[in-house]
Write a protein that binds this DNA or RNA. Structure first.
Lengths: 234, 234
DNA sequence: CGCTCGGTTGATGCACATCAAAGGCTGTGG
DNA sequence: CCACAGCCTTTGATGTGCATCAACCGAGCG
């Protein structure tokens, strides 16, 4: 038995935990993920590249990935951070000859369930509740982009604060005070359209004030209220 | 026969033109839009308001609407411009108690097909190809937001140019050189997160150069290549 | 040990916001 | 019919948040 299938079989129990598969039997999940693979991505490995033809979609099983795009200036703009349980690429599967609209790169060691487009066209498309779940994920993402857009004119501190709060809320356990993904200042900057230095100036001020604390890429929030205050302040 | 139903009946022929209803029979469309109304919105009338419970979704039949959100500073951020054929609010219909994530306001006199949420839950949800079409519209919108995000660090001129080019491409006939909606400098500014004055400075320069020309809110592009150049230039 | 990567700090400059003032145009009410 | 208010556009003067540039430190790593 090839390695990939073995890994899929052994992952079945894990898969049934994810909200997208809630209420599906093991057999149903197995059929939906037929020929799928659990991919291990080391830190900074790129899973899909912007513009490539999209033969696969899938779901983040552990860790996190950033969705990014090259800017005309040559650097990257991070469009979205995907975390555990997020679906990637599913909503372009129905297009004729879909191409990835963003590059997908691991942030820290991560695992991804990679499913052939075939499956989408054959199985997923027909399950209207499956499509609706995907649509809900997509619409959450959309609404998050909207919130971010509402802050364009706000000072940088507000944007950073909003990003932190958003990422914090992704945790299942809503009491958690640690961001669910390793995040460098550069990545924050690339997501907000700011420079690294400016982000650093904002965040080291907060560190001094004791609002947050970072130990190698892990950001811990000490005074959440204070951070939330920054969003409104102007 | 009440006025609203009459207007729906008489609109059936028109409805069948829209891509979302392609391939559906008159009877099918009528059932999908059962109890729907064609709403006429005068300029600047607000159809839905941010945060309100969403009892309706629908489609732009003529004119255009802006989707906006209040910023913490009190002014509005325009999140998206919807034009003819766009669907509004459909992707939140499947949520338990959906609320509009944006306000929807007419730009110039417009018409909107307003459909009760009921219909979505009863009919639309089951038609998986209908959902897929909506998903495609949504994913187009998403990808447009991504492009815009890739330009955050670009100079204002590039953002304005990109917006104009994007709106121009919405026309069925791709040769058209007039924007498909009346657009004030303030709306452009609110969409890009810039100040009115800055937008004006960029655009009046282009007018002087003869790239564009505006006669009461109607923006005509005279030298498309020159405008496109602005996106890359930095 | 040189390399890359992440974080930090200070000096300088610019793109754009802000403020102020004015003119045209439309609708509205006295 | 005129006055007035609101909206859109425009232009100039002034200010500032943040980018940019430059330099340095510590940690991990082949």
């Amino acid at each position: 038995m090839p390695d990939t299938q073995k890994s899929l079989k052994s992952a079945l129990a894990e898969l049934s935990q994810f909200s997208i598969f809630q209420g599906f039997s093991s057999a149903a999940i197995e059929s939906l993920c037929h020929e799928g693979q659990v991919i291990f991505s080391p830190h900074r490995e790129t899973l899909f590249r912007f513009g490539e033809e999209a033969h696969f979609f899938g779901m983040v099983m552990s860790g996190a990935y950033k969705l990014s795009r090259a800017t005309p200036q040559g650097d990257d703009a991070i469009v979205h951070f995907t975390t555990v349980g997020d679906v990637v690429g599913a909503f372009i599967m129905a297009q004729e000859k879909p191409c990835y609209p963003v590059s997908v790169t691991a942030m820290g060691p991560s695992r991804f369930l990679k499913i052939p487009r075939q499956n989408y066209l054959r199985d997923w498309k027909q399950h209207s509740d499956l499509i609706l779940r995907i649509q809900n994920l997509l619409s959450t993402r959309m609404s998050q982009m909207h919130s971010q857009k509402a802050l364009i004119k706000a000072p940088l501190a507000a944007k950073v604060a909003a990003l932190i709060v958003d990422l914090l809320h992704r945790h299942e356990d809503s009491e958690a005070l640690v961001l669910p993904l390793p995040l460098t200042r550069r990545e924050i900057a690339d997501n907000l359209g700011a420079s690294v230095e400016s982000v650093i100036r904002v965040m080291s001020e907060w560190s001094k004030q004791g609002f947050i604390q970072t130990t190698d890429q892990q950001i811990r929030i000490l005074k959440l209220e204070k951070v939330i205050d920054q969003i409104q302040k102007y």
